[in-house]
């Protein structure tokens, strides 16, 4: 227990010193995840709404695929992206490997099914008569969509934050495609892996505490949103 406390104290000191490298790692984590989740939301939310409102052949299959991919192991995403974006891969000439942008792409892929899936279930949670009301009130398609959007706004926030939480705490994909390069592609999770392997537990703990605190903020926000939606 003594060693644990010592690491904890060392970690707290490191955080309070606002070490520039620690700050830049944290900012890069936010940048990568926000970029990935922003675009995932941009595409996954309309996709989820479309799936929720329209009936078509094979819809059950698509929904099942989305649900399966909600549990997609990040390390597989990393491996596939690595092989595709490696210089000898199909998209090798893009020079995207080992950049923050490809890490964001990995998180886009990881977050997309989560956001689409949660959006879908938010629509599924709407009462039948609410949906009917939307249809009867909205004379144009645009009005119908914007009304649906309004009705599930809390569900959408939950979806985005669930995606964010998952992307933010993910390590398997970003360490493969990012390479954990100091000052370039080192984010909180990959830095924790590195510092642990070096036996630098204090630094690893400091990073862990920051990661935990940020995930806490994200989850706390989800809870507040959900409480609001029940009012």
């Amino acid at each position: 227990m003594g060693a644990f406390l010592d690491s904890l104290i060392g970690a707290a000191q490191l955080i309070l010193s606002f070490d520039p490298e620690l700050v830049s790692i944290t900012l890069l984590s936010l940048y990568v995840s926000l970029l990935g989740v922003f675009f995932a939301g941009l595409f996954a939310v309309p996709f989820g709404i479309f799936l929720g409102l329209r009936d078509f052949r094979g819809k059950r299959l698509v929904v099942n695929i989305i649900n399966t991919f909600m549990g997609l192991p990040p390390v597989i995403v990393g491996l596939f992206l690595f092989v595709i974006f490696s210089r000898q891969g199909t998209l090798g000439n893009t020079s995207l490997l080992f950049t923050p942008e490809i890490m964001a792409l990995a998180q886009f892929i990881i977050a997309f099914p989560i956001i689409a899936g949660v959006t879908l279930s938010a629509i599924g949670g709407l009462e039948k008569d609410v949906l009917d009301l939307i249809v009867s009130l909205g004379s144009t398609r645009f009005q119908r969509i914007s009304l649906t959007f309004f009705e599930i706004r809390f569900g959408l926030l939950t979806a985005l934050m669930a995606g964010m939480g998952r992307a933010f705490s993910e390590v398997g994909a970003v360490i493969i495609v990012g390479g954990n390069i100091r000052y370039h592609t080192r984010v909180l999770t990959t830095a924790i892996v590195l510092e642990t392997s070096r036996g630098e537990f204090e630094t690893a703990m400091a990073l862990g505490i920051i990661l935990l605190a940020l995930v806490f903020v994200i989850n706390y926000a989800i809870t507040i949103v959900q409480e609001q939606s029940h009012r």
């Binding site: 900012l27 926000l34 903020v217 507040i224």
Partner: peptide, 25 residues
């Protein structure tokens, strides 16, 4: 109140991401 906090948070997040974008550029 909660709403305001929320907007502040989103603003902060967007701000940092824009800042990071310029850095990587």
């Amino acid at each position: 109140m909660v709403k305001k906090l929320f907007y502040a948070l989103i603003l902060l997040l967007v701000g940092t991401s824009v800042g990071c974008l310029q850095n990587t550029g």
